[in-house]
Amino acid sequence: MASSQNLPGVSPPTPVPASVASPPKKQPYPFYLGGVAATIAASITHPLDLTKVRLQASGDKRMIESLKKTVRTAGVRGLFDGITGTWLRQMSYSMCRFWAYDESKKLIGAGKDAPAWKLATAGSMAGGIAGFIGNPGEIVMVRLQGDFAKPPEKRFNYKHCFDALFRIVREEGVSGLGRGVGPNVFRAVLMNASQLASYDFFKAELLKTKYFDDNIMCHFTASFAAGTVATTICSPADVLKSRIMNASGPGSNSTVAVIRQSMQNEGAMFMFKGWLPAWTRLQPTTILIFLTLEQLRNGVDWSRKQGYTLF
């Protein structure tokens, strides 16, 4: 039987170009998008984060009273005390954790429909790396935020984040930048294993249902669930980190000593002190981070389709 190539009036089939048969692999997003998204979110929720740190590190008892105290003593501007420390922390710790999370997922083969344990493993790996690298920024943020909750004679009186870094090195040595690194890394592991991994998990599960598409409603729901999970899991390490980093003097950076003293004075529930302001702060922060990050990614995709790259 004659093939179609030899029949009169019949054109041979046109070969399909390789570029059409297999579309080009999608380029990765810029590594710093997570840091930018986290900085925007943290700037908006800074007053809540400030209150959480002061509740954990001082004698303040209630969130509303602590907010009123800040406004009464320092004015509305006092709600943004230490904002430069927040920016430094987000552009070191947060930028690193999002980058490390994506790289860790590639390393262990955690794809789009990866099981929860693989996502949690990638999150834990990212948290360990980011917690260590971002520790100096974490110390600066905690001290700048907690300073005005102390008596005047015990304040650090840092001018801004860079002044804090220079003075810590000058007055406490380079090792001062490692204060509280153990609890901070532990908290970062918990945070990323719970927040980043649970967001990806909840988002994937929601997209499997008929009720959600990959849009802002799906992102909001997944990030709301992730924020609640992360707050509860991270509370003990968060309290310890704040108390150790906000202390000064010999022996004050001992995790065991802080736990022993806190248990004697307040009981085991000290580990969840500040849970409500932590949840109130982390919940909108988590939502804002992921909504902003998804929109930044959409912006990158849009710019690339237009034939140019803004990011």
Rank of each mutant, 00 (worst) to 15 (best):
R54V: 04
L55F: 05
L55A: 02
L55S: 06
Q56I: 09
Q56F: 09
Q56N: 04
Q56V: 09
A57K: 15
A57T: 15
S58R: 04
D60I: 04
D60Q: 14
D60G: 13
D60F: 11
R62F: 12
R62E: 13
R62L: 12
M63P: 11
E65I: 08
E65F: 10
E65A: 14
E65L: 10
S66K: 11
L67P: 14
K68H: 03
K68C: 01
K69P: 14
K69G: 15
K69Y: 07
K69A: 15
T70M: 12
T70I: 15
V71M: 06
V71Y: 01
R72M: 02
A74C: 10
A74I: 08
G75T: 06
V76R: 07
V76S: 10
R77L: 07
R77H: 08
G78K: 01
G78V: 13
G78E: 00
L79N: 07
F80W: 01
F80I: 01
F80C: 00
D81H: 03
G82L: 01
I83A: 01
T84K: 08
T84Q: 09
T86N: 03
T86R: 01
W87C: 12
W87P: 11
W87E: 13
L88D: 10
L88T: 13
R89G: 15
R89Y: 10
Q90E: 13
Q90P: 05
S92T: 15
S92C: 07
Y93A: 05
Y93Q: 09
Y93C: 04
Y93G: 04
Y93S: 05
S94L: 05
M95K: 07
C96M: 08
R97L: 12
W99Y: 09
W99F: 08
